[in-house]
């Protein structure tokens, strides 16, 4: 058990190391710090001096080690596009992205859990079929199309919500939040809805399949035979078993949600990490792209690892199998 955990942690670290190395190689081969930091008419001696000061003449692995050591300290280097510290650029935009993701998750949970339970318990009812039909849209429609359609209806036609930006924000202890103002809430509704649609349909479909499967299983049939009420049966016995895999699968979808947030932020001109990444791709700002590559990789790998390690702690059936 512990051996397995250690092995998985080491594997994860190895993958993160590989990702970091790829990212480092990208910066190292494609970026040109001398051209960025020196005037074009710099003499050979000046170039030589800077090369030595930046340590560019040292061996590749030494430079990689230094790059790696800088990561946890937040020393991410300087953007070639804006000449700002990359860590500062990310820190300034992180709250917007986290708030958007959190509100989107909230919306999808509030809508999808009741809808998923309903379609799982009454799969043949007409309303459940209608939900499933609509949910096809959530899996197939491109994220930006959903955003455009929402803007066309709720922003242009009805004029209820703004179509871009965050509204007014308040700085609270270094955290720039839009959730404390009226216009902030107005602005977050449409992008959060756009981002949540994928998660929503994903949760509905998973919960439905899980519940339908569990509904047919022995222990539910047995509980029913003992005369337990239907409500108790589903909510206490079935749901408990269905929720765990659903949460797991949702956690594993995080990568997709990050990708979709880039698109959503672009549609609504949301000033978050996604927009930063997109601007960097457009301007070929290789250092920010590389840092983003590492960032997404670490988030995904760590969540993956946590899910796998926590699973046996939550589900006693797995503990026995692994022992």
């Amino acid at each position: 058990m512990i051996l397995h955990a250690v092995e998985r942690i080491l594997q994860t670290l190895l993958v993160i190391l590989i990702i970091s190395f790829i990212a480092f190689m990208l910066i190292d081969t494609l970026g040109d710090p001398l051209g960025l930091l020196l005037p074009p008419d710099a003499s050979l001696a000046e170039r030589q001096a800077l090369t030595e000061r930046l340590g560019l003449d040292r061996p590749l692995l030494a430079r990689f080690a230094e790059f790696l050591a800088g990561l946890p300290r937040g020393d991410l280097g300087i953007s070639y596009r804006t000449q700002e510290e990359v860590s500062g650029m990310i820190a300034a935009r992180l709250p917007a992205t986290i708030e958007l993701a959190a509100v989107a998750l909230l919306i999808s949970l509030v809508v999808a859990i009741p809808a998923g339970i309903y379609t799982g318990v009454f799969p043949r009812s007409r309303f459940a079929r209608a939900i499933m039909f609509v949910s096809i849209a959530g899996v197939t429609l491109p994220n930006f199309v959903v955003g455009i359609l929402l803007i066309a209806i709720f922003s242009v036609q009805l004029g209820w919500f703004p179509s871009f930006g965050r509204g007014a924000t308040i700085v609270l202890g270094g955290w720039e939040t839009g959730l404390l103002t009226r216009s902030g809430w107005h602005a977050i509704i449409l992008p959060a809805l756009t981002l949540s649609l994928f998660q929503m349909t994903f949760i509905i479909r998973l919960l439905r399949t899980q519940l339908m499967e569990i509904g047919r299983s022995e222990h539910i049939r047995f509980a029913r035979a003992r005369g337990l009420g239907e409500a108790r049966l589903w909510f206490v016995y079935a749901l408990r078993n269905a929720l765990l895999p659903t949460i797991t699968m949702l956690a594993l979808q995080l990568g997709n949600i990050i990708a979709f947030s880039v698109v959503t932020e672009s549609v609504f001109a949301w000033p978050g990490i996604g927009t930063l990444f997109l601007q960097s791709v457009q301007a070929a700002d290789i250092r920010v792209i590389a840092i983003y590559l590492i960032f997404v990789g670490i988030v995904y790998m760590v969540i993956n690892l946590l899910v796998e390690l926590l699973y046996p702690l939550i589900d006693p059936r797995l503990r026995q199998r692994h022992a």
């Binding site: 993958v15 590989i18 990702i19 990208l26 494609l30 990568g255 997709n256 990050i258 990708a259 979709f260 880039v262 698109v263 990444f277 997109l278 960097s280 791709v281 457009q282 070929a284 700002d285 290789i286 792209i289 983003y292 590559l293 997404v296 990789g297 995904y300 790998m301 993956n304």
Partner: peptide, 26 residues
């Protein structure tokens, strides 16, 4: 393949696109 699976295809396509554009220029 496992390493690549850490990235959704859409995001990866964006990253590759960005890197190639960085190499060959505007």
């Amino acid at each position: 393949a496992d390493v690549q699976l850490a990235y959704p295809a859409l995001l990866l396509a964006m990253i590759i696109d960005g890197i190639v554009n960085a190499t060959i220029g505007e």
